[in-house]
């Protein structure tokens, strides 16, 4: 299998990268890990005139903590770097677990968090857990930058609010009062299989009472989907097994999955019911796992 020909650029810094991306507009594609982009180019779904690699941009790498603000994750951080980060292990192990449970080991060594977000597919593993933690993404172009909640980033399959000339540079998980978070995904195999469905949750508990909750479903709609009815059902309530059961059922009702080779809509909806209930139980009882 061969790739269509293209001109290759590896700008040494973000300014030059932004200039190139502006210059080429939609005739170029940005390359991070390439695990999605090269896939599409091999199938000639895409044949960009130029490929602009971000690999040389050291400012887009690494994970750090800014006191009073939050955890900053460079867009080029690979999935295995997320999974193995001591900083994330201490603060949000749930993000490490989500990264560890996706794709396969070889892909996780090259696939990046930025690529997983910008690619914008409903089954992607990282957006749900980042969204429930209130993550924001920074988009930079030659004129300036903007920071947007990940919640508002996705518009449809392969469609986002990112403009052609914008580079996603970092993801911020702000400091927060949540007491627990987790994501659970169901795949047809343990490794190398996209999620048939998934649920990520973050909760703020006060004793037995849930002060606030965020629930995001994977492969349940054209975009990673907030399950707002389920969130409302448990917010301010004393948590009981029956209530979690109802929350799962509410998430299943409001979801809008499709039929595909990986599972029927009906099957997916039932998975969503169970995964939501289990994820809530886990985040409530075990913390950020």
């Amino acid at each position: 299998m061969y790739l269509p020909d293209f001109d290759y650029y590896a700008p040494p810094d973000l300014v030059e990268a932004c200039q190139l991306v502006r210059e080429f507009g939609n005739s170029a594609k940005i390359l991070a890990g390439g695990t999605d982009l090269l896939h599409k180019m091999k199938h000639t779904e895409l044949a960009p005139e130029a490929v602009i690699s971000l690999k040389k941009l050291s400012e887009l790498k690494g994970i750090r903590y800014l006191p009073g603000q939050g955890v900053i994750i460079g867009a080029l951080t690979t999935q295995n770097e997320l999974a193995d980060s001591p900083l994330l292990h201490r603060k949000y192990r749930s993000v490490c677990e989500a990264a560890h449970n996706m794709a396969n080991n070889q892909i996780r060594h090259i696939g990046t968090v930025g690529g997983n977000i910008v690619n914008a597919v409903p089954s992607a593993d990282l957006p749900p857990i980042l969204m429930v933690l209130g993550a924001k993404v920074k988009l930079v172009n030659i004129d300036g930058e903007r920071t947007v909640p990940l919640d508002e980033f996705f518009l449809g399959v392969h469609q986002t609010i990112r403009r052609d000339d914008e580079i996603l540079t970092e993801i911020e998980i702000p400091d927060q009062k949540t007491t627990g978070s987790t994501s659970i995904r169901f795949g047809l195999r343990k490794s190398g299989a996209l999620a048939v469905a998934g649920a990520a949750v973050a909760v703020e508990m006060d004793g037995e009472t849930c002060r606030s909750a965020r629930i995001v479903l994977a492969a349940a709609a054209p975009v990673p989907m907030r399950a707002r009815a389920a969130e409302r059902l448990i917010t301010g309530q004393q948590i009981t097994p029956d209530l979690l059961e109802q929350a799962g059922a509410a998430a299943a009702r409001e979801s809008n999955p499709r039929d595909s080779i990986r599972g029927s809509a009906e099957y997916r909806r039932d998975l969503i019911r169970i995964l939501t209930r289990r994820a809530l139980h886990k985040a409530i009882t075990e913390g950020h796992v």
Binding site: A10, L38, Q106, H109
Partner: peptide, 16 residues
């Protein structure tokens, strides 16, 4: 292995 890490060489550009 690239710098000791296993990767799929079918998903890597030679130039990189």
């Amino acid at each position: 292995l690239i710098d000791g890490k296993p990767v799929n060489s079918c998903m890597v550009l030679a130039v990189e």
